[in-house]
Design a protein around this nucleic acid. Sequence first.
DNA 1: TCCGAGTGCAACCATCGAGTTGCACATCAG
DNA 2: CTGATGTGCAACTCGATGGTTGCACTCGGA
Lengths: 110, 110
Amino acid sequence: MSTRDRAVPDAGALDRLFGVLADPTRRRILETLVHAGPRTATELAGDFTITRQAVVKHLQVMADAGMVASERTGRDVRYRATTDCLATAVTWLLATGPAWDRRLARLRRS
Amino acid sequence: MSTRDRAVPDAGALDRLFGVLADPTRRRILETLVHAGPRTATELAGDFTITRQAVVKHLQVMADAGMVASERTGRDVRYRATTDCLATAVTWLLATGPAWDRRLARLRRS
DNA sequence: TCCGAGTGCAACCATCGAGTTGCACATCAG
DNA sequence: CTGATGTGCAACTCGATGGTTGCACTCGGA
C-alpha cells in the first residue's frame, strides 16, 4: 500500500494513535509522563511491574505514533509526552459523533 | 462484569473503546452507520471487500464496547451506531491533554 | 582506570485478533 | 412445500504484539 500518512489525518495515523491508547499500560505511561514530567525508561519500569524492555517497546510504539519524544542527556534518555497529536483523535471523534457540540459544551464545563 | 458506566471510566471500557477505534475497518463501519443509517451485516460486507463473518465479528466487538446496537426485524438484523459512548474517550483525552481548552476552542471553531 | 548503572539490540515465546471457510438453522417469497 | 437469502456458530490459519531473557555497548563517578 502506498497510502502513507501526510497532512490528511486518516489512515495509519489514527491507527497508531488509537492503537497506543487501546493499551492500559500505554495510557498509564502517558498519564505519568504528562502529570509527573519526563522520565527515563528505567524509572518508568519501576512503577509498572513489567520489564524495562517492555516499557521501552511501549515507548517506541508511542514515539512512532508521535505521542512521546526522547531526549538524551548524558547516558540516560528521558521521554516526555507530546500530546499535540491527540488533537487528531479528537478531530475524528468530533467528525464522527452526530451531535457533539452540545455534549462537548457540557464536557468542557465540568 | 458489573463495571458499567461510571463517573470515572474504568480501564476495561477505555480498552474496548480505543480498541475498536484502533481498527480502520471498524472506524469505517462506524462512519457508515453514523452517516448512512442502520445497516445489516451483509449490506456492510458489500462495501468492505471482507467477508460477512468478519464484519459480524467486528460488529460484535463494537457492540461489546457499546458502540453499536443490534435490532432484529424478521430474519435480518440491522445495526445502528450508538455514539454516546465516545464521550468516555473524549473525557479521557481531555483529562490527559495538558492545555486542551485553547486547542479545543480552535477545533470547535472549524 | 575500572566498575556499576543505564541503554540498545536481538532472539524467543505465548497469546490475541483479524480473516477465512464450512455448515446448520431460520425466514421470506414463489 | 421448496428454494433462495440471511444469520449464527465453530474450527482453522497466520501475522501482529506484549512480554521475557541475554548480552554487548556506553557513559559517569570514585
